[in-house]
Simulated assay, not measured.
Amino acid sequence: MKTFSARINIACPPDVIWSVLTDANRYSEWATGIHRLEGQFAQGEVLQLFTQSKPQRSMALTVKTLVRPKTFTLSGGLPLNLFRGDRTITLTPQPDGTTEFYMTEVFSGVLEPLLGRRLPDLTPSFEEFAASLKQACER
């Protein structure tokens, strides 16, 4: 299974970060590479993600888990779970008053050995997302 992740400490409590992360209407204001995000962050809901590179084509992401203000998992991919990505975001309060933001995505499915090899390294885009989130929260 192919996995990518990013981690950063943000000088805000989890509630502040959570409110930014779960405000789908404002993603295009801070999240690099995202044209827009439509839908509600609620268990079982489907979000429609439009990227800057393909602003006319959406990707459906299902909110698989949601535990306020700690973690959520978005899942998307091919039908029948032939190839699937599960992106989990976790917020962990730190003793120094900051919050650790951790994002990981795990790719799976019967086609993962083939399609996973074709995936570019997503680490730089994950790190850019984390840095953009930090900047948006600490403003």
Rank of each mutant, 00 (worst) to 15 (best):
W30H: 06
E45M: 14
N25C: 09
A31N: 09
E45F: 14
Q40C: 10
G33A: 10
A60F: 05
G33Q: 06
T62N: 12
G44P: 13
H35Q: 10
R36A: 07
L49C: 15
E45T: 08
S19F: 05
M59G: 01
A60G: 10
M59H: 06
F50C: 09
I34L: 00
G39K: 02
T22V: 08
R26G: 02
D23S: 11
S58Y: 06
V20W: 00
T22A: 06
F41Y: 15
L47Y: 03
H35R: 01
P55C: 12
W18G: 08
P55K: 11
V46Q: 02
H35E: 10
Q40L: 07
F50H: 04
L21E: 09
G44C: 09
E45Y: 09
G33D: 03
I34D: 05
N25H: 10
Y27D: 06
S28A: 14
H35A: 07
V63G: 07
V16C: 09
T62S: 13
N25K: 13
R26D: 12
D23F: 00
P55R: 10
S19I: 01
N25V: 03
G44L: 09
I34Q: 01
V20I: 07
L61D: 04
R57W: 10
S19E: 14
T62P: 08
L61P: 03
L37E: 01
K64N: 14
Q43T: 13
Q48Y: 10
S58W: 07
I17N: 01
K64R: 14
Q52M: 14
W30A: 07
E29H: 07
R26A: 15
R36V: 01
Q43F: 05
V20M: 01
R57D: 15
W18D: 02
N25T: 11
A24K: 06
R36G: 00
E38D: 10
L21S: 01
L21A: 02
L21T: 02
V20S: 10
Y27H: 12
M59C: 03
E29P: 08
V46D: 01
Y27N: 05
P55H: 09
D23G: 02
L49R: 02
I34E: 01
L37M: 12
W18L: 08
S28V: 06
M59P: 00
A31E: 03
Q56S: 14
E29I: 00
E38W: 00
T32A: 12
G39V: 03
T62A: 14
L61K: 11
R36Y: 06
G44I: 04
T22Q: 13
L37G: 01
S19L: 05
T51I: 03
L21H: 01
F41I: 08
L47H: 04
V63R: 02
Q52A: 15
